[in-house]
């Protein structure tokens, strides 16, 4: 029997992302400055893009941000705390419905639904995390999978609240007149704002005591416990935070699509999210973004070949990534950038 999952073998999934944070502080400062520059350029491009693209492409980019939000949550759990969830689509769905139901019933302003959705998902994550996080990895995967499967018929059952299989159609947030933006652009900027805040929050969380505790748990549970990290407390917290981000993603999704139905949140969504974060890069800051681009564009490009092509690509890539590039696309991009810098410095 495999009694000691911690000590054996190469820890493929848990390679820490700190390889770039070198030994000398000066090099670290250089890396940090360089990172800020890239982030700034990306942000500029992100602000500029919606004025240059046709509405459909703006919509696609908005969906990339939605997925990135959800993957940010999943990354916190899988990449940083080393706990697996096969049911994150469920929290996404809960966030979506926690947005849709108040909108449909009480016509609340859109912005109010964001804290509602995030809060409901957080509480649900906490409630489910309490029993689930006492479980070892494998059982957690089972329980989360079962939750994701159970949620769809549950949503269909409470028809008078959720609209059943027909779903709920909702108004999208209208752009204020002073902005002069079209609807698709406004939605994009809303998603961008939420994503920026969320990425900031997650980065802060990971730099804090919580983040160090999570990394310790991921790398060696027993050692972490001996050092005084309360395992079940931090694991439950990671689960709840992770649910919060997924819930926020569900909220923005509902704003953007203006429609929710149980069949949008089948278990495939959960599995796609896991695929996205694995390919994007577990435990890396840019991982959710790469994963979101992947989840958004690979299916729409490869579907022309065959309806099954996205699945074949996802499946093969997940396995390949686990073998050769455990830090995913983000890790590869980081390595490429490092070697480029080295060449530049030599030349």
């Amino acid at each position: 029997m495999n009694e000691s999952p911690v000590s054996t073998g190469e820890s493929t999934a848990t390679v820490s992302s700190g390889s770039a944070a070198g030994a000398v502080p000066r090099a670290r400062a250089g890396v940090a400055r360089w990172r800020w520059a890239v982030a700034g350029l990306l942000l500029l491009a992100a602000v500029y893009a919606p004025f240059q693209l046709v509405p459909f492409h703006v919509f696609q980019l908005t969906m990339v941000l939605v997925y990135a939000l959800a993957l940010l949550g999943l990354n916190l759990l899988v990449g940083h705390a080393g706990q697996i969830s096969l049911g994150h689509g469920a929290f996404f769905a809960v966030g979506a419905y926690a947005t849709a139901i108040p909108l449909a019933r009480w016509d609340v302003p859109h912005l109010v639904t964001l804290p509602i959705a995030a809060g409901v998902a957080f509480l649900l994550g906490l409630a489910l995390g309490l029993p689930a996080m006492r479980l070892r990895g494998l059982y957690l995967a089972l329980v989360t999978l079962a939750i994701a499967i159970f949620l769809v018929p549950l949503l269909k059952r409470f028809e008078e609240v959720t609209g059943g299989s027909m779903g709920l159609t909702l108004p999208k947030p209208a752009p204020p007149a002073w902005t002069g933006l079209a609807e698709d652009q406004w939605l994009y900027f809303l998603a961008l704002a939420v994503a920026l805040v969320a990425f900031g929050l997650a980065a802060g969380l990971l730099r804090s005591r919580v983040g160090r505790a999570l990394h310790a748990i991921r790398d060696n549970e027993a050692a972490a416990e001996v050092m005084g990290v309360r395992l079940s407390y931090y694991k439950t917290l990671a689960f709840a935070w992770s649910a919060l981000f997924a819930g926020a993603a569900g909220c923005v999704y509902t704003w953007v699509i203006g429609f929710v139905s149980p069949d949008s949140f089948v278990v495939t969504l959960s599995i796609t999210l896991l695929a996205g974060i694995v390919v994007g890069g577990l435990g890396s800051q840019a991982g959710p973004l790469f994963g979101a681009l992947f989840v958004m564009f690979v299916p729409s490009i490869s579907q022309d070949v065959n309806k099954a092509a996205p699945g074949v690509i996802f499946g093969l890539l997940i396995i390949a990534v686990m073998y050769v590039a455990p830090t995913g696309l983000a890790g590869l991009a980081g390595r490429a950038a490092d070697s480029l810098k080295k060449t530049l410095r030599k030349g």
Binding site: P5, G9, I84, R136, L138
Partner: peptide, 8 residues
Amino acid sequence: APELTVVI
């Protein structure tokens, strides 16, 4: 390898 890797 760790359980997480194998499950994935």
